[in-house]
Design a binder for these strands. Structure first.
Lengths: 206, 206
DNA sequence: CGAAACATTGTACTTTTGTGCAGGTTCGCC
DNA sequence: GGCGAACCTGCACAAAAGTACAATGTTTCG
């Protein structure tokens, strides 16, 4: 029982091969081929959003558990695709060990999605999060002023705008930012913005 | 790492022992004992319905994955308990093989519930959780290459990293970005990253 | 009171980002 | 063959972003 990866580009073939000895890849879904697999993995284009659910549904129809792999996972997306019948929803570039983990879960009747999404999907409170190191932001570590700056960045504001809003100099904004980056372990405002919105970032390939 | 079963009656002890060599059973929750387990299984009384969620929460607080075992599984119950932090929800009298299956799933970060409940609970979540903004990005306007760049930015990657990943020069990445900003109507990579994750950004005055 | 944390800002400098201008290539299509 | 779209790139430049070092005032707390 192999794993079938459906991908247009096939760029990640090597990664999949690393995860599963029996990984197979194809550019389109062949129901007959899918039927013989332990699970079907779909690489989702960000484009053609409307087609994604249909793609999942088609794959599900083959009767094997389907895992959707999104380049940019989101809560809404996870909902839609799980509802379309996917049993797993993960980052497209999840590490091989994680892929194996997901396969294990899904092929035994479970649902899998990134911890941070599980949390939000079920509406859990942060404190209650179990198993994996949930990478909860240590927002408590921030001072009140730093928090204000961080929040603005989380909404896409520039240093100048933040300075204006808080009635301080741009230099001070930068000072706060340096402190924030250090405390939260991110390297620039983009990663901060994403982290503030509970989105895992690049270096954190989990 | 054993499995800890919390049960008032202890009637099903033998079944649990059959499922797991390392099964332990107790009548009440001892946080210290729970902390040393692979998973905690709660037998839920039908009586004292109000207490069930609290019981789950207490168990979850110990930091180990919790499976709720209900004598009469129901959709509403499943949702409530998963929301309380349970990672699994099953019939109290599930067969030993199934218990093992569930353990496998839950201890690897998955969610488990009876198949027939899965779809319904997912459907329910949609109604319970505030639906995210419908703001649809015009991702179709992006060319395939631009999309790749945008996705990387959405994960916090720098231009250098993107260039490396796509095997192109940093200059080209910048060229793509300029096109992306224009097409999507954002002004910089931070706003792009947020937009790609369906997060509304600071209202740009200019 | 004095240490420590916080907030603020300046000067100066490095690095990243983003743009303008000016080219190249390839590929499909009329 | 010509044309346009997408892709790729170099040089130059401006504008942000971020860091290093330093300093001053305020608040907080033991």
């Amino acid at each position: 029982m192999s794993r079938l990866f459906i991908s247009r580009s096939g760029q990640l073939r090597e990664r999949w091969a690393a995860a599963f000895e029996d990984a197979r890849a194809d550019v389109g879904l062949d129901p007959a081929a899918a039927a013989g697999c332990a699970s079907v993995w779909l690489e989702l284009d960000t484009a053609r959003a409307a087609r994604r659910e249909a793609a999942v549904r088609d794959a599900v129809a083959a009767g094997r558990p389907v895992i959707a792999m999104a380049p940019v996972p989101s809560e809404a997306d996870a909902f839609a695709l799980l509802q379309a019948g996917a049993r797993g929803y993960c980052h497209l570039e999840a590490a091989p060990e994680q892929l194996r983990e997901i396969a294990l879960v899904v092929e035994h009747g479970g649902l899998w999605m990134p911890p941070e999404l599980t949390q939000r999907v079920l509406g859990l409170s942060l404190r209650v999060v179990p198993t994996p190191p949930p990478q909860v932001l240590e927002l408590d570590a921030l001072t009140s002023r730093e928090l204000m700056v961080a929040e603005q960045v989380a909404r896409g504001a520039s240093n100048r705008e933040i300075a204006q809003t808080l009635s301080i100099s741009e230099r001070t904004v930068k000072a706060h930012l340096t402190a924030i980056f250090d405390k939260l372990g991110v390297r620039d405002r983009v990663q901060l913005a994403l982290a503030m919105n509970n989105i895992s970032t690049h270096s954190t390939v989990n």
